[in-house]
Design a protein around this nucleic acid. Structure first.
Lengths: 220, 220, 220, 220
DNA sequence: AATGAATGAGAGTTCATTCAT
DNA sequence: TATGAATGAACTCTCATTCAT
C-alpha cells in the first residue's frame, strides 16, 4: 500500500460531488429540508430504487416541479443526504489518539467512533448499498473516505510500530487496509439481515476490537 | 452468537431458490446453457440493471419468448448462475483441516479456498452486489452461506480452543462471525475500485491471513 | 391576383398585433429594453424554441415575474422585436421610383432596399422561420406585408406597362406576386445553409435583379 | 456557383437519413403503415409540434410501445414520410428535356414536374416547414435536393447557352440557383396562407413559367 | 416448443405561467 | 412594481412480460 498516493482532504471529496447550494431564504430552506427528510424516510422504508421522484415530492407535500428546482435528480438528493450524514467522519482524529499506553482501549475508542454514526447515516445504508455498485462516483467517494481513514490509521500505526509494540513481521500498510475494509463491512453489514439483540451486537463489537488489537499488538 | 439456531444444510438453501428444472432434452439443454452463458457475460460487462432480457436473448441467439419459457425472469437467470457458481463452497471442508500442527498454514489454506472461486463466480460479483441490497431472498441466501461457513469454522475453532492454543479470553462465536464477514468483504471487494497489482493483492491476502491467525492464536 | 381586396395600411397591421404599451417611466423603459435586447441575442444564438422565458429574464438581469409583467409571453417579445425590425419596410417607397429611365438600375435599388434590413432583422430571421409555420397570426402578418409590397409594385408596374416598356403579354398582377414571393425567399434564405462568400452573394443578387428585370422589361 | 462541388447522388442523401428497415412480415408492415398514415394525417391537421407520439399511436390504434419499436421517435416518422414523398423528384429528368425547340413549353413541363407532387407531399408541407428551421439535418437534406435540381438545370442551361439562345450577359450558375430557390418557395408557399382559387393558381404558375423563360431566353 | 410483435405502466424531466410576498 | 418559488400538465422513451401464431 503506497502512502504517498494523492492525499485527498475531506472537503475536496465533498466538493467533487457538486451539490446544489443550500438556499438562504427560510421558506426555501424549509422546502428543501422537507424534500430531504421525506427522501431519507422513503429511502429507508422502501430503498432507493423503489422510491420515485414523485414519491418524494408527494411525501414532502411539494410539487414535482419544486423537487426538480431544488435537486437535479433523485441521485443528487441521496448524495446531499449522504454527504451530510458522513461529515462527522472528519472528527475521527485517529492520529491524536494515544495507542501506546492502553492500546485495547484506544482501539475500542477508534472503532466506536468509526461505527457510531448518526441516525441519518443508518437510514441511508440501504440506499447507499443499492447505489454503490452501480455508481462509479459514489464508489470512488467511498473509496476516498476509506483512504482517508487508512492514512490516519497509518500515522498512528507507524508510531506504535517504532515503539516496538507491534508484531515484528507486521506488514503495516496491508494490515491497515484490511482493517479499513473490515470497518467498512462492519459499518454497513454488521447487524446482518436478521435482527440482532443489543447483547449480541456488543459481543460482535468486542470481538472486532480484539481482532484489530491482536492483528497489531504483540502482548495479550 | 447462538450456534443452536436452525442449521441449514447447503442443498436446502439451493432448493429454497426454486430454480427451474434443467431440461432433459439435449437441444433444450443447449438453449438453456446459451442463455446462461450470454447472461453471465453481459452481467459482467454491463452489470445486472444495465442488461435487459432482450440483450440476453439476443446474445444467446434465442427469441425473447424462448428466454421466458426457460426462466421466469431475469432474476431467476442470475439466481441459477449464482447457485452454480457457489456450489464449490460446499467443498470448503474446514472441519477436516488440522489447525493444531501448523495453524498459520492451515488458515492460509482456508482463506485461499474461501477466496479462490471459479471464473463464473467473479463474473457475477458485479450483478450480485447490485441485487443483494434489493433482494431479500438473495440477501438471505448469502446469509445462509455465511452461516454455513461460520458453523464449520466453529467446529474447528472449538477443537483448537480445547487444546488451549487460542487466546484465553477469546469469544469464539463472535470472532468467527466477524471473520466470516471479513472474508465476505474480501471476496467481493478486496481488489477495490482501483486496479491493484498482483503483488499488492498478495500482500493483502497475507495480511488477511495474519490477521485471522492473530485473532485466534496466542503464539507469534 | 385581385388588387381590390382589403388594402391594409401598415400601421393597421402593426396595431393588429396588440403589442404592450411602451412604458413611460425611464426605469421601466430600461427594463423593457433590456428584455428585448437579451431576447434578440438569444433568439439569434439558439433560436426561438431553444430559448426559454427564464433564459431571457436571466440574460436581461430581470426576474421572471418582471418579464411577465412587461410581456404576456415569449411570443409577444418576439412580436415586439419583429414589429420594430420591420418598420423601415414602410420606407420602401417603390411607387416614387422612376422605373422608365433606367429600369435595371431602378430595380437594383428596389431589390437592395428590400433585402438590406437592419441588424435586428437579420438576428430575428431564425426565430421568425421557427414561428411562421406554427403561428397563423405571424403568417398573416407576413402576408400583409407582402401584400403591401405587392401593391406598391403594382402601382409602379402599371405605369411602365402603360408606357409600353414591358412584355406585351405580361400578367402584371401574377408576376408581381411571384416577385414578392421571390424577394421573401431571398430575404430569408438566400445565403443558404452553407456559408457563402461575399462575392457569391453579390453574384446571386445581380442574378436576382436581372431575373426581375427580364421578367418585366422587353429590352435587353 | 461552383458546379464542381461534391455531386451527391440522390440515394446517398436518402441513405444518410438512416431510416429503419421496412419490415418484411405483412402484419408488421400493416402496423408500420398505420402509424405512417396516422402521422401524415395528424401532421397535416395539427402540424408537427402539436402532434405527440401518443396522438399518433392512438390514431393508428397501436400502443405507444409499438410506435417506439417501429420508429426511434416522432422525427424519424416524419423523415420516413418525407423521404417517401420526395422519391419521385428523382424522375425530374431535366437534362433530357429539349429546351431549344420550344423553350417556353419545355420550361412549363419542368416547372410542372417540380411543383406537381403527390398528395402525401402536400400533407407534409406544414410539418416540413416547422422542422426545417430547427433541424440542421433536414435543412441540409433540403439543400442537397436543391443542389441536385440545380445541377440538372445547369447541364440543360449550358446546352442552350452554347446554342446562343440565352441572354449574352447571363450568369448561368447564379441564375439557376435563384430559380431553384424560387421553385422551392413556390413549392412550399405558392398558394399562400389564404386559399386561392384554381384559376388564380394557374395564373401564378404561368407567371412563374414566363419569369423563368425571360430570365434565360432572349426571344419573346 | 419457439417466436417476436405488442403492450402499457411508469420513470424522469422541462418550462410557461401564476401568485403570495 | 418586483420578485422568484411553486406549480403540474405534458412529453418522450424504456423494458419486463404476455400471448397469438
Amino acid at each position: 500500500m503506497d502512502q504517498h498516493r494523492t492525499e485527498v482532504a475531506f472537503p475536496d471529496i465533498l466538493a467533487a460531488l457538486d451539490l446544489p447550494r443550500v438556499p438562504q431564504q427560510a421558506r426555501s430552506r424549509q422546502k428543501r429540508d422537507a424534500i430531504l427528510t421525506a427522501a431519507a424516510e422513503l429511502f429507508e422504508e422502501r430503498g432507493y430504487d423503489a422510491t420515485t421522484a414523485d414519491d418524494i415530492a408527494d411525501a414532502a407535500s411539494v410539487s414535482i416541479g419544486t423537487f426538480y428546482s431544488y435537486f437535479r435528480n433523485k441521485r443528487q438528493v441521496f448524495l446531499t443526504l449522504y454527504a451530510a450524514s458522513i461529515e462527522d467522519i472528519l472528527e475521527l482524529g485517529i492520529t491524536e489518539i494515544d495507542f501506546a499506553t492502553n492500546p485495547r482501549q484506544a482501539i475500542r475508542e477508534t472503532v466506536m467512533r468509526a461505527l457510531q454514526r448518526d441516525k441519518l447515516f443508518y437510514s441511508l445504508r440501504q440506499a447507499w448499498s443499492e447505489l454503490l455498485p452501480r455508481d462509479p462516483e459514489i464508489a470512488n467517494y467511498n473509496y476516498q473516505i476509506n483512504r482517508l481513514i487508512y492514512q490516519q490509521m497509518l500515522v498512528a500505526g507507524r508510531r506504535v510500530k517504532a515503539q516496538g509494540l507491534t508484531w515484528p513481521e507486521l506488514d503495516l500498510e496491508a494490515t491497515c487496509w484490511i482493517i479499513v475494509l473490515l470497518l467498512d463491512q462492519a459499518l454497513h453489514n454488521m447487524p446482518g439481515p436478521k435482527e440482532t439483540s443489543r447483547a449480541e451486537l456488543e459481543r460482535h463489537q468486542e470481538a472486532l476490537i480484539n481482532l484489530i488489537y491482536h492483528a497489531l499488538f504483540r502482548t495479550a
